[in-house]
């Protein structure tokens, strides 16, 4: 009887591990094929599109890729500028707003928090026509500010930061800093921000990745080739220019993904923990 049960138990275990391993392979294999094909020639790919081993045409693919419209260095630099700007604005101003919600006792505090909960649900997509017309009238298309500054008002991040402050900030720290004569801004920047480091790290990762991956707003606002971000560069691989240059298409795709892989595997612990805490769905 007992043996029967233990056999059933171990078969179950085998099933579970098999399913999990298959799913893990499913996560990896499309990217693996992509990376391998980035080093293979178009002829090889057309003969056999799947190879689990690399070939030696990386450099010639690179030459073809660079010889046309795809400019990975420009795309990388532009994406970096925007994403860093967005990350700094999101993290700093959300922390400031959350601090105001937690530490000070003002009359509209509760109302303001309810307001943040409500606007959390409004997606940017629905205001895009008005936003485009507004920026167009100001002649600010092809400028990065309209892509960066909206990040100052990030309701989801404020919500997350507020939860964090409520659980980890002792008001006595603020009070004793006041007795020592610290101004309110000084206290926030020098004492509270360091306390918030773990929350800032998590939210910074999500803000950065979200901005790095954003295609919708940049493709509408940016028309100058020299201002294109990485996702817009990638979208060009879809066009006729690269039609049959499979090797260089795969290489171009790989170039956008490699920085994300590096970030992800270095910080996956924080990312998974951040997702588990909720409040992020971009």
């Amino acid at each position: 009887m007992k043996r029967k049960k233990s056999i059933a138990k171990s078969t179950m275990k085998v099933i579970i591990y098999t399913v999990c391993i298959l799913l893990a392979i499913l996560s990896i294999i499309p990217f693996w094929i992509m990376l391998m094909n980035a080093t293979r020639s178009t002829y090889e790919i057309q003969q056999h599109a799947i190879s689990l081993l690399p070939s030696k045409f990386f450099l010639s693919n690179w030459e073809v890729l660079k010889g046309k419209t795809f400019n990975p260095i420009t795309g990388f630099t532009n994406s970096m500028i925007i994403s860093v700007g967005v990350t700094v604005c999101t993290v700093y101003f959300s922390s400031l707003t959350a601090y105001a919600l937690v530490v000070y006792n003002w009359r509209l505090r509760q109302a303001f928090f309810t307001f943040i909960m409500i606007i959390m649900m409004i997606p940017a997509q629905i205001t895009i026509i008005g936003y485009f017309q507004f920026i167009y009238r100001l002649h600010m298309t092809n400028n990065y500010l309209p892509l960066i500054l909206p990040a100052i008002a990030a309701p989801c991040t404020v919500f997350f930061m507020r939860q964090y402050l409520l659980s980890s900030l002792y008001i006595d720290i603020v009070n004793s800093a006041r007795i020592d004569g610290g101004g309110e801004f000084y206290i926030f920047n020098r004492i509270v921000l360091p306390i918030m480091k773990p929350a800032i790290a998590t939210q910074a990762i999500f803000a950065f990745v979200g901005s790095w991956n954003n295609y919708f707003l940049p493709v509408i606002l940016l028309t100058d080739k020299n201002k294109f971000t990485m996702p817009i560069m990638v979208a060009q691989l879809r066009g006729d220019i690269y039609k049959t240059e499979f090797g260089s298409i795969y290489l171009g795709l790989s170039l956008t993904v490699i920085p994300l892989f590096i970030v992800y595997f270095l910080l996956s612990k924080y990312i998974i923990a951040g997702v588990a805490l909720g409040g992020v769905k971009e």
């Binding site: 959300s94 707003t97 003002w106 606007i119 500054l149 100052i152 404020v158």
Partner: peptide
């Protein structure tokens, strides 16, 4: 209490300019 209001100014301003105004415009 006034600092509560002051620290929320950037958020509110950014929201008015980049969110509310485009919504009304749309």
């Amino acid at each position: 209490a006034k600092y509560g209001y002051i620290f929320c100014i950037p958020f509110v301003l950014a929201w008015l300019i980049f969110s509310l105004y485009p919504t009304i415009y749309t």
